[in-house]
Simulated scan of single mutants.
Amino acid sequence: MGFSIAAIKQIREQHEKHCGTTEQWQFNLHLIDDELTEISVQEKQLADRRAGLTDLKEQLLALLDSASEGGETTI
Rank of each mutant, 00 (worst) to 15 (best):
T22R: 12
D55L: 11
L60G: 04
I11T: 00
G20P: 00
S4E: 09
H18R: 15
L64H: 11
E69V: 08
A51R: 10
E35G: 02
G71Q: 02
I8N: 11
L29V: 11
E16A: 02
H30N: 15
A6V: 06
F3H: 06
R50S: 02
T74I: 10
K57Q: 11
I5D: 08
H18T: 02
A62N: 12
T73N: 09
L36K: 08
T22Y: 10
L29M: 14
T37V: 11
R49P: 03
D48Y: 03
E16L: 11
N28D: 05
T74R: 04
L53Q: 07
C19Q: 08
A62P: 06
D33P: 01
K57T: 08
L29W: 12
S40E: 10
A67S: 04
C19E: 07
L64E: 15
K57A: 05
I75G: 11
L60S: 06
Q10A: 10
A51K: 13
I8W: 05
H30L: 10
F27L: 06
T73R: 06
L29T: 15
L63N: 04
T37M: 09
E16P: 00
F3K: 02
K57C: 09
Q14I: 00
S68H: 15
E13C: 03
Q10K: 03
Q14W: 05
R12W: 04
D55E: 10
A62Y: 10
T22S: 15
T74E: 13
L31A: 03
C19L: 14
I75K: 08
D34L: 13
Q24P: 01
K9Q: 05
K9M: 05
K44G: 01
T73W: 06
L46D: 10
I11A: 07
I8G: 07
Q59K: 15
G52E: 04
W25Y: 14
L64S: 11
L53V: 05
G71I: 00
Q14V: 00
G52A: 08
A47R: 07
E58N: 13
S40C: 09
E58Q: 12
Q10D: 08
E13I: 00
F27K: 05
E38R: 13
Q24D: 13
E13V: 00
T21P: 02
K9R: 08
T74P: 02
W25T: 12
Q26Y: 06
L56M: 08
H18M: 03
E38Y: 07
A51D: 00
G70C: 02
R49Q: 12
G2W: 05
K9L: 06
E58R: 05
S68R: 13
G20S: 01
T73H: 09
D33E: 12
